[in-house]
Design a protein around this nucleic acid. Structure first.
Lengths: 209, 209
DNA sequence: CTAACGTTTGTCCAATCGGTCAAAATTTGC
DNA sequence: GCAAATTTTGACCGATTGGACAAACGTTAG
């Protein structure tokens, strides 16, 4: 099945972490093709041959990074469950996703880069694992609609819109900060976003009559 | 001021267009650093030195492309006007943006790539022209809220959410299609998205009581 | 202490990168 | 039709790329 449990020394574990941390920084801002091993090595504070001792190819780093990312990235959606009030469930899913955009912006950008480039390295996972999960959760949401707990609409596009609006604050961060300016673009922007998104998804824009 | 009106022959105009078209394709999927002059030249059906006869540096191509993009890209927001019913205005702004994602996905991805990489080449424009325009339109929206025409919320984040949800269908197209599958991921996905987004922005998710 | 093993480095390589240049081929103005 | 101007090409350049490799350096267990 998977890699047969590679035995690693303490130094190997530490150095591999160091490299992955540096590579996350570099890959997430330059994309795979736009990043160089030298850049990653320098960011990790080691020589290029030394880095290649721990990861034999540039692709191996990216692949490892991607595998880790996908697990944590889908965790919030996995938590979306049928127990509890539907509107509250969706609200807290949105909140969790927004928190991830705030706390792990580099992971979000790494993912965005991969998708933008046509997902050449993770396409099977999108069509497999991801689609299965989304279909499953769409069914849950459909159940809520049939029960009259939330408005009837398209569950898949609902999930897309949650992804889009929350990840926007990580992927387009520089634009968000530039437009909001130095006053409103500070640390409070995520709380403003949280408030706005909650209102948007729950009540929409129609004025209360 | 600007470039002093470069006189160009017919061939120059045509070939420059050809190159820009090819470069749009390449840059939008690989980013600036990840793209090579050879790739663009091949996509344009000419030799590398020939391409460099029309654009002396790789950056010149990207810059020209970016300047053109920004004009057309902000056109829909410029059209957002104070005349007419606010909810209708917003609805048609969303529709126009979604049509742009459908008809000009490469332009959207080119822009996304630039922002993802920290907007090194267009930061002044974000803080200048873009911020000014958004602030201006946010004031218009605020007026609608004060007049009770739409619900009170944050106009800036409202604009962000429209950008995010619509551009998502261009930037994350491969993911959207992978998740929707061969049946629902076909040509109809933009109409489904349009229907969903209209409902989301107008009414939200709360069930009609 | 030392032999075995794990780690680090300098040097090197072929391929590719952005870009130059002079010469050849073509188009254009008259 | 012909000369001048424009366009196209092949050959080439130095820098950078991903990666190989052997030698040097550290670490650790007995």
């Amino acid at each position: 099945m998977d890699t047969p449990a590679p035995r690693r020394t303490r130094i190997q574990q530490e150095k591999r972490e160091l490299i992955l941390e540096a590579a996350l920084e570099v890959f997430s801002t330059n994309g795979f093709r736009g990043s160089t091993i030298d850049q990653i090595a320098e960011a990790a504070g080691m020589s290029k041959p030394n880095l290649l001792y721990y990861f034999r190819r540039k692709e191996d780093i990216h692949e490892t990074l991607m595998q880790r990312l996908l697990n944590t990235w889908l965790a919030p959606l996995r938590e979306l469950d049928d127990i509890g009030d539907p509107l509250t469930e969706l609200r807290s899913y949105i909140r969790r996703k927004l928190e991830m955009a705030r706390d792990f912006p580099r992971e979000s950008r790494l993912f965005a880069n991969e998708i933008l480039q046509g997902a050449p390295r993770i396409m099977p996972m999108l069509e497999g694992e991801l689609k299965t999960l989304v279909d499953e959760k769409a069914a849950v949401i459909k159940g809520w609609m049939r029960a009259g707990k939330i408005a009837r609409t398209d569950p898949w596009h609902l999930i897309f819109s949650i992804w889009a609006t929350t990840q926007h604050y990580a992927d387009f961060d520089v634009q968000v900060r530039a437009v909001l300016g130095p006053n409103r673009g500070g640390d409070g922007r995520f709380e403003d976003a949280a408030r706005f998104l909650e209102q948007l998804f729950i009540d929409g824009l129609k004025p209360k009559s």
